[in-house]
Design a protein around this nucleic acid. Sequence first.
DNA 1: TTGAATTTTGATAGCGCTATCACTACGCTC
DNA 2: GAGCGTAGTGATAGCGCTATCAAAATTCAA
Lengths: 360, 360
Amino acid sequence: MQNAPRKARNSATSTRRKSAAVTIHEVAQRAGVSPMTVSRVVNGNANVRAATRELVMRTVRELNYTPNAAARSLAAASGTRIALIYTNPSSAYLSELLVGALDGASKAATQLVLDTWDHMTRATERAAARKIAQSVAGVILPPPLCESKAVCSELVAAGIPVVAIASGRFQPDISGVRIDDFRAAQEMTEHLISFGHSRIAFIKGHPNQTASALRYEGFQAAMAAAGIPVDPTMVQQGFFTYRSGLEAAEKLLARKKPPTAIFASNDDMAAAAVSVAHRRGMDVPRDISVVGFDDTPTATTVWPELTTIRQPIAAMAASSIDLLLRSIRRRKDGEARVVVDHVVAHVLVKRDSVAAPGPG
Amino acid sequence: MQNAPRKARNSATSTRRKSAAVTIHEVAQRAGVSPMTVSRVVNGNANVRAATRELVMRTVRELNYTPNAAARSLAAASGTRIALIYTNPSSAYLSELLVGALDGASKAATQLVLDTWDHMTRATERAAARKIAQSVAGVILPPPLCESKAVCSELVAAGIPVVAIASGRFQPDISGVRIDDFRAAQEMTEHLISFGHSRIAFIKGHPNQTASALRYEGFQAAMAAAGIPVDPTMVQQGFFTYRSGLEAAEKLLARKKPPTAIFASNDDMAAAAVSVAHRRGMDVPRDISVVGFDDTPTATTVWPELTTIRQPIAAMAASSIDLLLRSIRRRKDGEARVVVDHVVAHVLVKRDSVAAPGPG
DNA sequence: TTGAATTTTGATAGCGCTATCACTACGCTC
DNA sequence: GAGCGTAGTGATAGCGCTATCAAAATTCAA
């Protein structure tokens, strides 16, 4: 904080230390090309001769060169940091989500930042959205945040690119990666029906997620197509938690004429139904079949292992990163916003929790 | 690849685009100090007057300035990439590990990279260690990799800093962050004994982890201290998997005189024991108490919820990152290697799976 | 008060990479 | 052969920050 002029520093050789890692200059020198050419090759840019490209790639391999992500982000001024915002640390698919997101991020030399938004008022959500828009270049939103109109509109208004993951229904203002929840639930119900089940109970997911409604709709559609009426007393509200699954299953299995199968909207609730059945002296699947959804680790941390729908969360997360980076690039280039609806395949995973209904 | 000399470029104003974010220069200008002073304040460096510090902090707040992480890592030439190597994607604590590691990494402007080493020969492990040593500045190893002498010695030989997490026993050649498994298991056993249990069965963990031996030793020590002999037929080998827990529990509960309590070396195996008990028509905890270890999500995705030992994995992961970055810095500064054994507190988490033994 | 030591602050250069502009070489058309 | 357009490559400057050295200001002791 002084106003007096300062003498220029003596222009001696800098003593600044260089990192131990191989740099683009070393590769360039060895290959006999410019650093810019190495950059073009490594980044897959056009306008490099095939022979030059091969020579550079060989040199990269020999020196085991890995680009410095920080330098790349800084120079490219591309989105260096993206945030993944989640609400529930115990969420059954968080690890798969993180593994997939980290994989996608590290391939793109991008820093993944976690943030947790839980039990927030509208005002704090708004403030959080504004703050994050200033420190990251884009946001990945899993449910239930991606279902919140308030969250989405704040982020969109802040001009930050957003990608929803596993959002159930496509939303016209943000891009997303999802499975077809309706079709998946329909298939699972058809699977149960194919075993001869007609007294099928359904435990709904949390109403704050559109996937819940879609899964129920898929169930209903398959039942209708098979000419089986849905008894509303065979439908219980759950909240995607083990505890809510216990409560729902107690009600279903306490009935005079219990169901022969339970389709729970996620694996945790299905595991709870298995526990209740066992404690009531019922054999799974002989006396009652139980199926879940998501193929989380819970599906195999229960006995018998659950037949469930696999949602490829890790691949979806990596796809989300890709989509988000594309969006950030378009924004940077002043191009028009494009909203993408990327639907990936689900898989019906057959394990040991389903059998034909017994004689009762 | 042209040999012709090139004319020097005309030294015109660059058209390079500047990012929209607030920079340290803008803060400096507004506060009337140099960028270097802002840097010192933001990084908590010494030798800044209190008044200057306050002025700068106020300006930072007004402008909502957030340092550019990429620029910071690049300028500081700190270890920018660290790897977390894991073996089992279904590991019950992977998500907590990742959340903690990502938190620690992003606070330190460090890029976290995941790698998975599974079912590798000694030779491929060696090659992988060499390769990773060339592309990251340090490595975090969870079990069972941190227990592998081969893995550890390869990484140490490659001169790369390594930190083990949840390793059971301190190893004199690499730093680590762990709980006291012996003491934790001792406490859990004491807890069961305090309820009046003496017929306590134990399901061991996987022999490829030293935590397994320590937990068993802790169990034995508490039993010995209480003057209760350990019946070897009440001890079954498990492998930290739900399936191995099923098998062990079937053996224990098929006995003419079954145990009144089961202490399983992790939550998955405890959950399996609960399932077997229920299917045998036993009430948990009235007929049989069941306790686990780790406080993973499994502990609360079961009914009744498990009494267990909480190992604070997320905090431990963040600590590991910190320790690793310190180690990287020491190495960079040419300082001697320091091996640290950081033991963090565990917590005995009491839930609903323990009661006094019944009259039988 | 003076001189020495220490604290505080600022200027410079560069961390590793890439956007951008300029140049060269080559191919095609007239 | 001359001129034009495009592919391929290289040189420059700078992305935002901080390590390092130098200069200025302050404090302390004689």
